[in-house]
Amino acid sequence: MSITIEQGPRYTLIHILNDSVDALSAKEIEQVRSQMRDVTVLDFARVMFINSAGISALLKLVIEARKHGQHLYAVNVTAHHRKVFEMVDLLRYMPILDEEEYKAKISEAA
């Protein structure tokens, strides 16, 4: 299993343990759609590489969140991945939280 999930009443925290978010890991990431709650946070701390196949998987989570009026965030994103997310305009739909913002979001949704 390359993903672990922590949940509270209104939040889901998804730790991606695979170092690559690519075509091979995309399916597993897409499968967390059913576990998303009001606030869902994707933790990229272990992720070293993301390509367009991985971004497409993340977009499926964005679509699912919007469909249900939920909010999707990212934490522990490298500067390179932030740059790539900006290039494809993903940050409009999946903002990156810093440590304090992340704690506040989880606290609000607990």
């Binding site: 390509n51 367009s52 494809v88 305009d89």
Partner: peptide, 23 residues
Amino acid sequence: GRPSIQNKLDNGEESPRGLGIYL
């Protein structure tokens, strides 16, 4: 040009075309 994520969200496109080439 930059593939539109908004089109995907609005129209349910499976994947924004040309994302890899754009990158």
